[in-house]
Design a protein around this nucleic acid. Structure first.
Lengths: 91, 91
DNA sequence: AATACCTATTGACAAACATCTATATGTTGA
DNA sequence: TCAACATATAGATGTTTGTCAATAGGTATT
């Protein structure tokens, strides 16, 4: 795993609004419109953050008709966890 | 744990050079000058990244004479791990 | 087909950030 | 005390990022 990729994964967690989004996703898959309702940002800003979260691999997206459903990616989280374990010396 | 603090912790991991620094610290405490030797950045840039790492709580600093020794903070790492566990639903 | 709706993209802008050079601060040894 | 060294801070600069308004692209319903 190279440095660039690792940094990309963790980009998911280094913005306040993305943390807020991830928190909402802990209770399960949510539609973009639902996420938007509970935040004080515009729709394009949400879309931008969701792209960042998808790119990091921490969130999965599923399109259903006009709706976009997002959920936390177990696989992505595990990659992040593995990196932290590595730093801890628990390779 | 509020969103701002969480984002701050993870700032540690979202820059390539900081990932490189953390990698070097996995083999144990290192002096700033030693870290600098192995990177292609200037001394002030390293200093700047070390400040970010200290602020995030992921790295500990220890001053000894003119040297500054840095090491990975188990406590900081555990906070990061707890957050990932929380996202995974393993509260 | 036309309209309403949800989401993504574009373009603009300000704030944050990574980086450098120059300089300051602090420490050790002569 | 002075010189050499390690690190931090200040100031400048280019890049990235977060944000918004406007608009485009799809999809469902009528």
């Amino acid at each position: 795993m190279d440095e660039r990729k690792t940094a990309l994964i963790f980009k998911a967690f280094c913005d306040e609004n993305r943390i807020r989004i991830l928190k909402m996703l802990t209770s399960g898959e949510k539609c973009a419109c639902k996420l938007l309702e509970e935040m004080n940002i515009t729709q394009p800003t949400l879309s931008h953050h969701m792209k960042t979260l998808l790119d990091s691999g921490i969130v999965n997206g599923r399109k259903e008709g006009k709706w976009m459903h997002y959920s936390i990616s177990e696989e992505g989280l595990e990659k992040a966890q593995k990196y932290l374990d590595y730093l801890k010396g628990e390779v």
